[in-house]
C-alpha cells in the first residue's frame, strides 16, 4: 500500500468488491461496464474515505456513490444501450422443475435481459430492493429521492417485468392469477 492510500480502504475493497461488481453487472448488464462503474465510484469515494469510514454505514455511502455514478453515466449519449428483443428469450422462463440446477440460471438470464429494458432509475430501484435487500427508506437514501418515488418506481418496474411473457408464465405456474 502506498503512503497516501487511505487506511482500511484496500481491506474494504477486498471484502466487498464481488458484491459491488455484481450490483454493477445488474445495473449495466455488462461485466466490463460493471468493472468500470465500480472503479469510477470507488475513485470518487477514495478522497472521502477517512471521513466515510468513521460512519456507521460505509456500504450505504458506497452504494449511493455507485448508483449516482451509474445514473450520471446513463445521461451520456455515447453510453446509451439498445436493448435487443426481450421476447425472443421468453420461453426460457418456464418454472424450473424441482432440483433442476440449471433452470434458475436460465431464469436469471431472462431477468437480467429484462432489466436492461427498464429505465435506469427503475432498474436501480429493482436492483437495490430485490438484490441488495434494501428497505424503501435505504433505497430512497441511496438514490437521493423520496420513499414515494421508490414505491412508484418499484410499481412501474414490476409492472413492466410482469408484462413480459416469460415472467407472466412463471407467476402463473406458481398459482397466481395475473391482475
Amino acid at each position: 500500500m502506498a503512503a497516501h492510500d487511505p487506511p482500511g480502504f484496500q481491506e474494504y475493497i477486498a471484502a466487498r468488491r464481488d458484491h459491488l461488481v455484481r450490483i454493477g453487472v445488474l445495473l449495466t448488464g455488462d461485466r466490463h461496464h460493471a468493472e468500470d462503474l465500480v472503479q469510477a465510484a470507488l475513485v470518487r469515494v477514495w478522497p472521502k474515505w477517512t471521513r466515510v469510514s468513521r460512519g456507521d454505514n460505509v456500504d450505504a455511502y458506497v452504494r449511493r456513490v455507485l448508483t449516482s455514478t451509474f445514473l450520471n453515466w446513463r445521461r451520456r449519449l455515447w453510453h446509451r444501450e439498445h436493448p435487443t428483443d426481450l421476447g425472443a428469450d421468453a420461453g426460457l422462463l418456464a418454472r424450473p422443475a424441482a432440483g433442476d440446477p440449471f433452470a434458475a440460471v436460465d431464469t436469471s438470464d431472462v431477468l437480467i435481459a429484462a432489466l436492461r429494458g427498464l429505465p435506469p432509475r427503475q432498474r436501480a430501484v429493482v436492483v437495490l430492493r430485490f438484490y441488495a435487500d434494501l428497505s424503501e427508506a435505504d433505497c430512497a437514501d441511496a438514490l437521493g429521492c423520496g420513499v414515494g418515488t421508490i414505491k412508484s418506481q418499484t410499481h412501474k418496474a414490476l409492472k413492466t417485468l410482469r408484462a413480459l411473457p416469460a415472467l407472466r408464465d412463471a407467476a402463473t405456474s406458481h398459482g397466481r392469477v395475473e391482475a
Binding site: 502506498a2 475493497i13 468488491r17 461488481v21 472503479q39 436469471s108
Partner: peptide, 28 residues
C-alpha cells in the same frame, strides 16, 4: 411469489461474477 422469484433470479444471475483482483490497484 413475484419478488422471491425476482430476488432469486437476480442472485443466481450474478452468483458467478467475481471482481478482478487488481481492482484496488486500478482504483488507486
Amino acid at each position: 411469489v413475484d419478488t422471491e422469484l425476482l430476488s432469486a433470479g437476480l442472485r443466481a444471475g450474478v452468483a458467478h461474477v467475481t471482481a478482478a483482483p487488481d481492482l484496488y490497484a486500478r482504483v488507486a
